[in-house]
Amino acid sequence: MRADRLIAVLLLLQRRGRVTAAQVAAELEISERTARRDLEALGLAGVPVYSSRGRGGGWALVGGARTDLTGLTQPEAQALFLTAGRSDTAAGRAGLRKLLAALPSAWQAEAERAAGAVLVDTASWGGPPEPDPPCLAALLRAVVDGEQVELSYRGPAGSSSRAASPLGLVSKDGRWYLLAGTAAGERTFRLDRVTATRPLDVPVQRPEGFDLRRAWERRRGEFERDRHVERTGVLVDPGLLPRLRTLLGHRLVEGAPVADDGRVPVQVLGPVPEVVALELAGFGARAEVTDPAGRAQLRRLAAELASLYGPGPGAG
């Protein structure tokens, strides 16, 4: 995750005072080109980092070496935490905790809100990615600032406006969702249906103990039940499992005993077996769909590809 590296690069700058791209590359086990891009990314995010050429040159933070992050302004710290907060790894979360501890105490509450403002759900529902909606920046700022907004929303039942307390934003398959408190309780809004936002200059009413990840997992389960998500049986080569775990996330259901031939029976959540079968077709024999509807879909696909490309080399 790049966010993990940005935190590591910043902490390295704090510890050493001045570093070269080669030193960053050696420390983080990345290429010099990647190290240089990460250093430049810190500058673009608003971190006061600069480079100097010649003997004794390198990259440093404005003001020289420090043992804390007081060289950052409050908006710069928020920008960094918004970027790093999208990391979904244990290492990234550990890095955020270390970085948070180095901030001035007066900034820590807002930095925590920035880090927890956005969640990226990497498990796919199979939908195409979409461009960021125009209201994303305003709602992100409302989450971080803890300010209520008036949402103009175009829903299935028509258009409406309501006051909302933005609690967090989730990116799923390139589509953005806002979790917010309303007079009718906690609600989830698709950002591509938000037609306008207006700040209300009223503090957000945040439920005690609210956790964006847990709240989204609950809402995601409701969405999947509404979408009539089915389970498709698949026999998987054990070597393919790590890749499927990354690709499918919570949609991959394990736990069945290993088959006699060494393959691992799993279930894959999806709207219909045919969609899951097409999703796994690229893995060939390493992922055998056992559901009859999915197998029929794959036979049709195989016949279509054979007709288009002809028999392979050496075919009789």
Rank of each mutant, 00 (worst) to 15 (best):
R175M: 09
P156D: 02
G116L: 06
G158D: 12
R113M: 12
A123Y: 08
A137L: 10
A102H: 14
A91M: 05
P128W: 09
R97M: 11
R175K: 04
S165W: 09
D121P: 01
G158K: 06
E110G: 12
S124M: 07
R86D: 02
C135S: 15
A109F: 11
L151M: 00
D145W: 01
V120D: 07
D145I: 02
L99F: 12
G174P: 04
T122H: 11
V149N: 01
L140T: 13
A90D: 07
G158M: 08
A101I: 03
V149R: 04
W107Y: 11
V143I: 09
G126D: 02
L82K: 08
R97K: 13
Y153C: 06
D121L: 09
R154T: 10
A115G: 11
S161H: 04
S105E: 15
S87T: 13
S159T: 05
K98G: 13
A102T: 15
A101R: 13
G155M: 05
P133G: 10
S159Q: 12
A111M: 08
E150K: 01
P131S: 08
L151S: 00
S160I: 02
G92L: 05
D132Q: 05
E150N: 04
L167Q: 00
E147I: 00
R141T: 05
P128M: 06
R175D: 03
L140V: 03
A106W: 06
T122E: 07
W107A: 06
S87F: 14
A101P: 05
D173K: 00
Y153P: 00
G146Q: 04
Q108W: 11
R97F: 06
P133T: 09
E110A: 13
S160H: 04
D88E: 15
A91D: 12
R175S: 13
G174F: 08
D145R: 11
K172H: 14
R175Y: 01
A115L: 08
E112V: 12
S87Y: 10
L100Y: 08
R86L: 06
S171L: 15
C135R: 05
L99Q: 11
L103E: 00
A102C: 14
A90L: 06
R93Q: 10
S171Y: 06
G146P: 09
D88T: 14
L139K: 05
S160N: 01
S152A: 15
Q148V: 08
P134Y: 07
L103Q: 01
V118L: 08
G155A: 14
S87P: 08
L151E: 00
D121K: 00
R86G: 04
S152D: 10
S152Y: 11
L140H: 10
A94Q: 14
E110T: 12
L136R: 10
P129R: 01
G85Q: 07
T83C: 08
G92C: 04
